[in-house]
Computed example of a mutant assay.
Amino acid sequence: MTLATQRILIIGGGFSGMSAAIDLRRRGAQVDLVELDAGWRNYGAGISLGGATLRAFRQLGILDAFLAQGHAADGVRLCLPHGPQVAELPTPRIAGADVPGGGAILRPVLARILADATRASGADIRLGCTFTRFTQDADGVDVEFTDGQRRRYDLVIGADGLYSKVREALLPQAPKPVYSGQAVWRAVLPRLPEIDAATMWMGPRIKPGVNPVSQSEMYLFVTEPRPTNDFVDPASFVDRLRGLLDGFSAPTLQSIRAQLGEHSQIVFRPLEGLLVPRPWSQGRIVLIGDTVHATTPHLASGACIGMEDALVLSEELARGADGVPAALAAFEARRWERCRMVVENSSRLGEIEIEGGDKEEHARIMRSSLMALAEPI
């Protein structure tokens, strides 16, 4: 059976699910995508992206749209709390000599770019719909849906995120997401003239940074230790975020602090992680993205490894002369170590920040991780 003759269901319309739909359609598969949110919305402020993500964008055919609507630049500037730059983290041009080594974009804008490409691919998209149950045999998977339909597929891909219902049904003993003891604040602000690349200020335990997301906007991100995952009243967001910047006298940060207000689209997110041990599949059902390897944002690679999952899965299915189960085994073998590295190294970076720990270890993990991410997938 060739990929062009296969019927594939993707459950979940996030970044990894949309990427899978785009690439599988490019290779000729018949693809259905169901997404529970009838509005196909994506919440959040900005998202920072490394060169490996831009490489994935190029393969998906959305790189030009990203460059037009987001922002790309080389290097990450590291500064002291009072302002002086002390280092610059290099970002290799992984996506090609003509493409900067990193960048950022507003998360809803990236979601719209991917959604447009998914629609253009010819995938059958059903919004406000998800599965209710599935049963499988050696030849396929029968799926029942919330809209009353029942369809049969050669493969089902679970891409429904951190709190995945597919994972719960397929692997009920899988670990649950774990709170990291750290949270991140994000806000969208008018771009300052001096901010033309990602810039971070290295406080003892609180780490602010900014990244341009377009020609006119930038987003602020601030990580802080929070021993318990308590509710934070949105009415307090502005004052709390301003307070986190009180200990930083850097003029740029103080200018940003003064701009913060109710208009700043402030988002607060407790950071959680998840790494599901292999296998990530059973029979003809496979899990990808945050469903099996959700990471904290310290390496700016969570979206990246989910999109890479989609591309590698599509590639292995296309070459899978030995059938779907063999292709899924090859997919997992290629993905496990890279995804484990991102999840575990990101977690360790967070631990060092929470503890106010060894900055040399922090820098060493960052360097080795970025070098590993530059490798082919």
Rank of each mutant, 00 (worst) to 15 (best):
G13M: 04
R133S: 14
E353R: 01
A104G: 04
D37H: 08
H362M: 12
T132Y: 10
D160C: 03
R257L: 03
T2M: 11
E337N: 10
P208H: 08
D116F: 02
Q69K: 14
R319N: 06
V292S: 00
H71N: 13
A303F: 09
R167P: 05
G51T: 00
T296H: 02
V324N: 09
D137R: 04
N229R: 14
V86Y: 13
P234M: 05
L245Y: 05
D147K: 08
A374F: 00
T132G: 14
A183C: 15
E168P: 07
R167S: 12
F248Q: 09
F131Q: 11
A197G: 13
S255V: 15
V178E: 10
R284C: 09
G306M: 07
V109S: 07
H298Q: 13
E272Q: 15
I94Q: 07
L328H: 01
G17P: 08
G247W: 07
Y43L: 15
R319V: 09
G103M: 02
A258L: 04
A372H: 09
Q282N: 09
C304I: 04
G96E: 03
T132E: 11
L49S: 12
A183N: 04
R77F: 03
G83T: 11
I354H: 10
D98S: 04
T252S: 13
L328E: 00
G103F: 06
S16Q: 03
Q265L: 13
P208T: 02
P234W: 03
V312A: 08
S314L: 03
R133L: 06
L89I: 15
V99S: 11
A174P: 03
P100Q: 05
E355M: 02
I305P: 01
V188A: 06
P92T: 11
P84S: 07
Q59R: 15
L80G: 07
M18F: 12
I195P: 07
R226S: 13
R77D: 13
V76Y: 02
G350E: 14
R107N: 01
G306L: 07
C79V: 09
I157L: 11
V184G: 04
I62G: 06
I305M: 08
N345C: 10
A138W: 02
F57Y: 08
D233Y: 03
I105T: 12
I352E: 01
W336G: 08
I10D: 00
G70W: 11
M366V: 14
W280D: 10
Y219G: 01
V184C: 15
P227R: 15
L220W: 00
I352P: 07
D98G: 09
S236T: 15
R335A: 13
A120P: 00
S369W: 07
A87D: 08
R151M: 11
G158S: 07
K207S: 12
G13H: 04
T2R: 14
E355V: 02
L170F: 02
G122S: 10
V166W: 03
F237M: 08
V222T: 05
T295V: 02
A197L: 14
